[in-house]
Protein backbone atom coordinates (compact mmCIF):
# COMPACT_ATOMS: atom_id res chain seq x y z
CA UNK A 1 0.00 0.00 0.00
CA UNK A 2 2.92 2.23 0.85
CA UNK A 3 4.23 1.86 -2.66
CA UNK A 4 0.99 2.79 -4.30
CA UNK A 5 1.93 6.46 -4.93
CA UNK A 6 5.12 5.35 -6.62
CA UNK A 7 3.27 2.91 -8.78
CA UNK A 8 0.80 5.60 -9.79
CA UNK A 9 3.59 7.96 -10.73
CA UNK A 10 5.41 5.24 -12.60
CA UNK A 11 2.27 4.29 -14.45
CA UNK A 12 1.59 7.93 -15.26
CA UNK A 13 5.04 8.21 -16.74
CA UNK A 14 4.56 5.25 -18.97
CA UNK A 15 1.15 6.51 -20.00
CA UNK A 16 2.76 9.80 -20.95
CA UNK A 17 5.13 8.04 -23.28
CA UNK A 18 2.37 5.89 -24.61
CA UNK A 19 0.33 9.02 -25.21
CA UNK A 20 3.08 10.49 -27.32
CA UNK A 21 1.79 10.61 -30.81
CA UNK A 22 2.05 12.46 -34.02
CA UNK A 23 -0.45 13.72 -36.52
CA UNK A 24 -0.56 11.96 -39.84
CA UNK A 25 2.35 13.05 -42.02
CA UNK A 26 2.48 12.67 -45.76
CA UNK A 27 6.09 12.65 -46.87
CA UNK A 28 5.09 11.88 -50.46
CA UNK A 29 4.21 15.58 -50.75
CA UNK A 30 7.85 16.09 -51.68
CA UNK A 31 6.87 14.76 -55.09
CA UNK A 32 4.58 17.77 -55.52
CA UNK A 33 7.32 20.29 -54.85
CA UNK A 34 7.87 22.65 -57.74
CA UNK A 35 11.18 24.46 -57.92
CA UNK A 36 10.97 26.99 -60.73
CA UNK A 37 13.57 29.71 -60.35
CA UNK A 38 13.80 32.66 -62.70
CA UNK A 39 17.35 33.07 -63.92
CA UNK A 40 18.63 36.32 -65.37
CA UNK A 41 21.74 36.83 -67.41
CA UNK A 42 23.31 39.10 -69.94
CA UNK A 43 23.51 37.36 -73.34
CA UNK A 44 25.21 39.31 -76.08
CA UNK A 45 26.64 42.78 -76.26
CA UNK A 46 27.65 44.37 -79.54
CA UNK A 47 29.14 47.80 -80.05
CA UNK A 48 30.59 49.52 -83.11
CA UNK A 49 31.80 53.02 -83.70
CA UNK A 50 30.83 54.98 -86.82
CA UNK A 51 34.32 54.93 -88.31
CA UNK A 52 34.20 51.15 -88.55
CA UNK A 53 30.85 51.35 -90.33
CA UNK A 54 32.17 53.94 -92.76
CA UNK A 55 35.25 51.87 -93.44
CA UNK A 56 33.08 49.17 -95.00
CA UNK A 57 31.37 51.65 -97.30
CA UNK A 58 27.74 52.38 -98.13
CA UNK A 59 25.01 49.74 -98.12
CA UNK A 60 27.31 47.07 -96.75
CA UNK A 61 27.47 44.38 -94.12
CA UNK A 62 30.01 45.79 -91.71
CA UNK A 63 29.85 42.89 -89.25
CA UNK A 64 28.73 39.29 -89.55
CA UNK A 65 29.76 36.66 -87.11
CA UNK A 66 28.46 33.27 -86.11
CA UNK A 67 29.14 32.44 -82.50
CA UNK A 68 28.64 29.22 -80.72
CA UNK A 69 25.84 29.63 -78.16
CA UNK A 70 24.97 26.59 -76.09
CA UNK A 71 23.36 28.37 -73.18
CA UNK A 72 19.95 26.87 -73.83
CA UNK A 73 20.61 23.66 -75.70
CA UNK A 74 22.63 21.95 -73.00
CA UNK A 75 20.50 18.92 -72.29
CA UNK A 76 19.97 19.74 -68.62
CA UNK A 77 18.88 23.28 -69.45
CA UNK A 78 16.84 22.44 -72.55
CA UNK A 79 14.79 19.85 -70.67
CA UNK A 80 13.92 22.29 -67.91
CA UNK A 81 13.29 25.48 -69.82
CA UNK A 82 9.65 26.55 -69.36
CA UNK A 83 9.30 30.11 -70.54
CA UNK A 84 11.08 33.39 -70.62
CA UNK A 85 11.84 36.66 -72.27
CA UNK A 86 14.82 37.89 -74.21
CA UNK A 87 15.14 41.65 -74.08
CA UNK A 88 16.99 43.63 -76.71
CA UNK A 89 17.97 47.25 -76.33
CA UNK A 90 19.53 49.18 -79.19
CA UNK A 91 21.00 52.64 -79.27
CA UNK A 92 22.07 54.18 -82.56
CA UNK A 93 23.76 57.56 -82.37
CA UNK A 94 25.41 57.24 -85.78
CA UNK A 95 24.27 59.17 -88.83
CA UNK A 96 23.18 55.97 -90.58
CA UNK A 97 20.11 53.87 -90.77
CA UNK A 98 21.27 50.43 -89.66
CA UNK A 99 19.85 46.94 -89.63
CA UNK A 100 20.80 44.31 -87.05
CA UNK A 101 19.86 40.69 -87.62
CA UNK A 102 20.19 38.05 -84.94
CA UNK A 103 19.63 34.55 -86.25
CA UNK A 104 19.19 31.50 -84.07
CA UNK A 105 20.87 28.53 -85.76
CA UNK A 106 20.61 24.83 -85.02
CA UNK A 107 23.44 22.29 -84.99
CA UNK A 108 23.44 22.12 -88.78
CA UNK A 109 23.60 25.88 -89.13
CA UNK A 110 19.97 26.15 -90.27
CA UNK A 111 18.12 29.26 -89.10
CA UNK A 112 15.41 28.50 -86.56
CA UNK A 113 14.34 32.07 -85.99
CA UNK A 114 15.55 35.60 -86.46
CA UNK A 115 15.11 38.96 -84.85
CA UNK A 116 15.49 41.88 -87.25
CA UNK A 117 15.90 45.46 -86.13
CA UNK A 118 15.97 48.43 -88.45
CA UNK A 119 17.08 51.50 -86.55
CA UNK A 120 16.83 54.99 -87.86
CA UNK A 121 19.86 57.26 -87.90
CA UNK A 122 20.46 59.26 -84.73
CA UNK A 123 17.73 57.32 -83.01
CA UNK A 124 16.44 59.61 -80.28
CA UNK A 125 15.34 56.80 -77.98
CA UNK A 126 16.56 53.39 -77.05
CA UNK A 127 14.80 50.76 -79.09
CA UNK A 128 13.54 48.09 -76.69
CA UNK A 129 12.03 44.79 -77.75
CA UNK A 130 10.89 42.02 -75.44
CA UNK A 131 10.57 38.66 -77.15
CA UNK A 132 8.65 36.13 -75.07
CA UNK A 133 9.17 32.39 -75.43
CA UNK A 134 6.98 29.63 -74.17
CA UNK A 135 3.22 29.84 -73.58
CA UNK A 136 1.88 32.90 -75.43
CA UNK A 137 5.19 33.55 -77.11
CA UNK A 138 7.47 31.96 -79.61
CA UNK A 139 8.05 28.21 -79.32
CA UNK A 140 10.50 27.37 -76.58
CA UNK A 141 12.01 24.78 -78.90
CA UNK A 142 13.70 27.56 -80.81
CA UNK A 143 15.95 28.19 -77.87
CA UNK A 144 16.28 24.58 -76.86
CA UNK A 145 17.58 23.76 -80.33
CA UNK A 146 19.75 26.83 -80.79
CA UNK A 147 23.39 25.95 -81.07
CA UNK A 148 24.77 29.22 -82.36
CA UNK A 149 23.86 32.80 -83.11
CA UNK A 150 24.63 34.69 -86.27
CA UNK A 151 24.81 38.41 -85.71
CA UNK A 152 24.83 40.62 -88.77
CA UNK A 153 25.05 44.40 -88.87
CA UNK A 154 24.20 46.20 -92.11
CA UNK A 155 24.67 49.80 -93.06
CA UNK A 156 21.60 50.97 -95.01
CA UNK A 157 23.03 54.42 -95.64
CA UNK A 158 26.15 56.08 -97.05
CA UNK A 159 29.69 55.40 -95.98
CA UNK A 160 30.95 58.91 -95.44
CA UNK A 161 28.68 60.90 -93.18
CA UNK A 162 29.66 61.46 -89.57
CA UNK A 163 27.22 62.08 -86.76
CA UNK A 164 27.51 65.26 -84.78
CA UNK A 165 26.86 63.25 -81.61
CA UNK A 166 29.66 62.74 -79.16
CA UNK A 167 31.29 59.34 -79.81
CA UNK A 168 28.58 58.00 -82.17
CA UNK A 169 27.95 54.27 -81.90
CA UNK A 170 25.55 51.48 -82.55
CA UNK A 171 25.04 49.43 -79.38
CA UNK A 172 23.05 46.21 -79.03
CA UNK A 173 22.39 44.91 -75.56
CA UNK A 174 20.57 41.70 -74.80
CA UNK A 175 19.63 39.85 -71.69
CA UNK A 176 17.33 37.04 -70.76
CA UNK A 177 15.12 36.05 -67.90
CA UNK A 178 13.98 32.47 -68.07
CA UNK A 179 11.99 30.19 -65.83
CA UNK A 180 13.36 26.72 -65.31
CA UNK A 181 11.70 23.76 -63.70
CA UNK A 182 14.41 22.24 -61.56
CA UNK A 183 11.90 19.95 -59.96
Amino acid sequence: MKRLPYCIILLSGFLLFLAACTEEQDFSQVDDLQVTPTLASGLFYFESDEATINSEGALSVFYSQEVNFDAFNEQYVAERLIEGVITYEIDNTTSKELRLIIEFLDDAGRPLDAEIFTIEANSPETVVRDVPYGPGGKPIDILANTSSLRVSAINLSDGTSVSSADDPKIILRSGAQFVFRLK
Binding site: S41, G42, L43, F44, Y45, E47, S55, Q65
Partner: peptide
Amino acid sequence: TTEGISVFLPDDI
Protein backbone atom coordinates in the same frame (compact mmCIF):
# COMPACT_ATOMS: atom_id res chain seq x y z
CA THR B 1 31.92 39.47 -63.29
CA THR B 2 30.23 38.63 -66.58
CA GLU B 3 27.84 40.41 -68.87
CA GLY B 4 27.68 37.64 -71.45
CA ILE B 5 29.38 37.55 -74.83
CA SER B 6 30.78 40.94 -75.77
CA VAL B 7 31.94 42.21 -79.16
CA PHE B 8 33.54 45.63 -79.52
CA LEU B 9 34.32 47.04 -82.94
CA PRO B 10 36.81 47.86 -84.21
CA ASP B 11 38.85 45.95 -81.58
CA ASP B 12 37.23 42.61 -82.37
CA ILE B 13 36.78 43.12 -86.12
